[in-house]
């Protein structure tokens, strides 16, 4: 099925001559290898970020957090708005797409469909994310972000902001002064100091340096009666903002600890 057109004559001469005149050289092999490695590296880094996001999602759904949320009295709208790790889900999806972009641009990446590349990326993120979660990476990251990240309570962990609402019976903060088992003071940077009243039974478990969240009732300005007290796994450092000189007392072995006054 060939046409009978005139072929381009002396094309090879013209091309070879142009190569010589313009001093065109093949791109060096090391540059090609470096570029390929860079693409793989960036794809790998994207998977790593996706894995960090997945480990944070697991952190959101650890047993202690789920149980606390069950006692929060939140309605389904608040559950959707505050409880779910929207930020980390978006972060995960974003980096899965970035990983797909880089793997698609590897030398043979075009041979695999979007579905195959995404499925492998998701699987890698889930496996690596689970390992990172098991190694305590999610907590380290939450502590790091909780300590200094802007919009932590609004975007990264909206659950933290959810607990800063004494008018609706929810209050969180750092225990800075324990007067007795029935009375102590908590502090958070947004709402300042609050006197907490509670029962002897509940208060006995609370110590200075704990970051706690409470469910109860606002009695008067900066006074709150705690009917339930929790040690939240998430957002510990956020509640301690402005009071970092107070050593943190919540330890892994204590969590999740839930105190309920029925």
């Amino acid at each position: 099925m060939e046409n009978k057109n005139d072929l381009p004559a002396d094309l090879e001469k013209e091309v070879i001559e142009k190569i010589a005149v313009e001093k065109i050289k093949p791109i060096a092999r090391w540059k090609v290898i470096l570029k390929n490695w860079l693409i793989w590296f960036l794809g790998g880094v994207s998977i790593l970020f996706g894995s960090l996001a997945f480990s944070s999602i697991l952190y959101f759904f650890q047993p202690g957090e789920v149980e606390i949320w069950g006692h929060s009295g939140a309605n389904w709208k608040e559950f959707l708005l505050f409880s779910l790790p929207h930020f980390w889900l978006i972060f995960l999806i974003l980096f899965l797409l970035v990983a797909w972009y880089y793997f698609r641009h590897t030398q043979k990446g075009y041979r695999y469909s979007l579905f195959v590349i995404l499925a492998i990326s998701v699987l890698a993120s889930v496996l690596l994310g689970s390992l990172l979660y098991g190694a305590g990476m999610a907590r380290l990251m939450d502590d790091f972000l909780g300590k200094q990240a802007p919009f932590y309570g609004e975007i990264i962990n909206p659950r933290a902001r959810f607990w800063l609402n004494p008018d609706n019976g929810r209050l969180g903060g750092l225990v800075i002064n324990k007067k007795s088992d029935e009375e102590f003071v908590i502090y958070n940077r947004d709402l300042g100091e609050w006197q907490i009243e509670t029962t002897k039974f509940l208060g006995a478990f609370v110590h200075e340096g704990y970051t706690i969240i409470t469910v109860g009732e606002k009695i008067s300005k900066n006074r709150f009666r705690a009917e339930q007290i929790f040690l939240p796994p998430l957002g510990g450092e956020f509640f301690r903002r402005g009071q970092h000189s107070v050593p943190i007392m919540n330890d892994d072995f204590m969590m999740p600890m839930i105190f309920i006054n029925k």
Binding site: N5, D6, P8, L11, E14, V15, K18, I19, I24, K25, P26, I27, A28, R29, K31, V32, Q107, K108
Partner: peptide, 26 residues
Amino acid sequence: PEEEIEDILQDVFLKVYKNLNSFNDD
């Protein structure tokens, strides 16, 4: 048209030459 194809063809071969190290036996 043929003249344009020849121009494209020349670009193709120049690009091939520049990227010879990118070709692998896969």
